[in-house]
Amino acid sequence: MALLNIRNLSVDFATGGGSFRAVDGVDVTVEAGEVLAIVGESGSGKSVSMLAAMGLLPWTATVTADELTFDGKDLRNLSPSARRKVIGRDVAMIFQEPMSSLNPCFTVGFQIREALAQHLNLDRAARKKRALELMEMVGIPAPEKRLNAFPHQLSGGMNQRVMIAMAIACGPKLLIADEPTTALDVTIQAQILDLLTGLQRDAGMGLILITHDMGVVAETAHRVAVQYAGWKVEDQPVKDLFQTPHHPYTAALLAALPERATERRLPTIPGVVPGQFDRPQGCLFSPRCAFADDRCRSTLPPVQPPELGRARCHYPLMAPATEEAQ
């Protein structure tokens, strides 16, 4: 049975201009020990869908789902106090900006111990020992000294390590990392990604990696879900996705990568992601799609079978991307 199972998740936000659907009918499944990457541009709903699953959205959001279970527990009708027992302990999350997600008023040691005190039955000395262990696990040099440091005294990479230490403090079964390396330099990014995948492998955790960086996806993920404007448009194992993308959006996104460019001009995707007031009828990608016809512009596309990458498209692409480019 899957660790996290989400079927037909939708999130609507009540805004001044009416309701806005940020996530529309998304399915997510993660097995234990699997690394799932969710890729998409800004506004594709990749963060919101995970925040919805964790119950971290503000009251303006309405979350509906046919199924929302974690480790056999239904998260939809869990009371807030029962939910807090699961969130932070069995499911943990790492956010993009380590500098702004740590509390500047407390030392990092206090903040790690706080997570332990909240969820585990440890006495003071045991908590301190565990905090030290965690700091060592995430590769912070001189951990005894650093436990008493405030976030502003540490660099971005160090703070991100502290965030990871907090997240894995209670031995979660599932770790959700929301753009964990976007704010970091490449050499530090490589260190953090190695750390995350190492911890994931050793503990057999499920890991959901939310990112927009195709390079990070290619190097760390087992399976990739591509989101566009609140839809999940494709879901494939990583090698297949990069070799044979079935949704035109995925194919266009991969072609737009500068490192895949064969000539000076890059292939582009014309237009922009639809917003609240210009959502097209039919397929959301149809205004920007090179293959769209009248059917795409009027009817909602079906979800194709797994062999076709669960592409949400009327006309999924069949040929490998390399042949098509030629």
């Binding site: 040099p141 490449v186 050499t187 490589a190 260190q191 190695d194 990070v216 996806v217 090698k239």
Partner: peptide, 25 residues
Amino acid sequence: VALLSATPSADPTRHRNRIKLEGEL
């Protein structure tokens, strides 16, 4: 060399020996 090897490449079939830089700037 380290910078180039740390940059993730969008090709899941390529497995490189990444040079790990110790420490920070």
